[in-house]
Simulated scan of single mutants.
Amino acid sequence: MTTDAAPPAPSAPAGALDPGRLKRRIPMWDTARFLAVTLVVIGHAIQRQTTGSEHALALYTFIYAFHMPAFGVISGYFSSADTPTAKRMRRTFTDIVVPYIIMQTIWTVVQAVVEGGKEFNPTKPTWTLWFLLALGIFRLILPYLAQLRLPLVWAVVLSIGVGYFDNVDSTLSLGRAISLLPFFLLGWQVKQWGVFDRWYEASRRTVVRVRVAAGVVFAAWAVSCALWIPQFKEFDLHHWFFYDDSYSGLGEDAWWAGGVRFGLMLLATLLTASFLVLVPRRTVWLTQFGAATMYVYLLHTFLLYPIRESGVLAGEHSAWPFVLLMVLVACAVSLFLAQPFVRRGMRWLLEPKVGWLFRKDPA
């Protein structure tokens, strides 16, 4: 018997940012989605403070080591490698392409007004929008990669190899998509292996042991970030966790730079696994907000942008009490944007009805 067991996972092609259409919800994954997106908000909230505060940089480095890989794993877990149906292909437009164009247009206008000189360029995603394009790329190529032997190995090879090419950049999020592809493949592969099906049914003793080990992993990484942040800062470690620059762009164009990325990928995998097993398997208070992940992800930037651009987070406002304050603000923003009334009020913008885009289905 277990105290927090969850129902078996459904087979549904939903991503980390769009769980709303799942007919059978799994409490653990909804909770994980919301916690992951809250880490994103916290990271963006304290980013301006990292230049003046080692406390902020330590927390930032801690979060960035695994929060986007975790999103990749969650997205892959709920993705399908089957031949795309007409419905699934249309959802690529409605879930990714249309929201991306809308938000990219809005951000272009906002930045043009505030910063000036901004041109509309849909090939260069603004701020957080890169993940929408990356998710679209993941979904498109998964059926092809699934035909290969050891697809996860090929994804790792691609991720390490792309760092040696300076011409693969942020255009259409291609650099980040290829770099983070192994985590997406890992999520899909874990689903095929039935790892979490066994985790749902694991005994209480097993759960406790695994979670203690996961807690030790997190504690060890937290201590490392606290003690060695000067060395991490000198190495520019947090920029490696962005997965968007070539090795030469990171200042490390030696032949062994790919080994550094591989090591950081192993670290991200270990931290992501620890994160997921620490998430409660049963329904908790935060579970209800898992369906609003896309709204939190796409809208939190509008609330944080004025604070970040005002310059108020510089100087003495980078001290640790203000870092803690921004963490609390970020959590409040995440909770606010996950409320049902926000989803109802913003659905017209983030989930517009675009049936007129598609030709009549012959079927």
Rank of each mutant, 00 (worst) to 15 (best):
V217S: 08
L250R: 06
D197C: 03
L140W: 11
H317Y: 14
I106L: 15
G43C: 06
K118T: 10
T50A: 08
R359D: 10
F322K: 04
G249H: 05
A177I: 10
Q231M: 12
F275S: 02
T269P: 08
S246H: 08
V109F: 13
V216C: 04
L324K: 03
V342F: 10
V333I: 15
V110K: 09
F275E: 02
A16L: 13
L59C: 03
S203I: 07
T38A: 12
W255C: 00
F62A: 05
Y243A: 13
I96D: 00
V37W: 09
V312N: 03
Y100F: 11
L264V: 03
L133K: 02
D245H: 09
L303V: 09
L328S: 10
P340W: 09
M103I: 10
V223A: 15
I101L: 15
D18G: 05
Q111E: 13
L158E: 05
A70P: 01
Y305V: 06
L186P: 05
V210P: 01
F78S: 01
P352Y: 05
W199D: 02
L324M: 12
L145D: 00
I102V: 15
A338G: 09
M265D: 13
R211V: 00
I26W: 06
G249Y: 06
Y200K: 11
T269L: 12
W348E: 05
Q111W: 11
V323W: 03
R176G: 15
D245T: 03
I137H: 06
Q111K: 13
D236S: 10
A319S: 12
P13H: 07
L304W: 07
V208G: 00
V296T: 10
L133R: 04
W320K: 08
A219P: 04
P122M: 12
L298Y: 04
L303I: 09
Q49E: 12
A254G: 10
G52D: 12
D197N: 12
G116W: 11
I42M: 06
W107N: 10
A36M: 15
P230W: 08
I307H: 01
L324S: 04
V277C: 13
W29I: 08
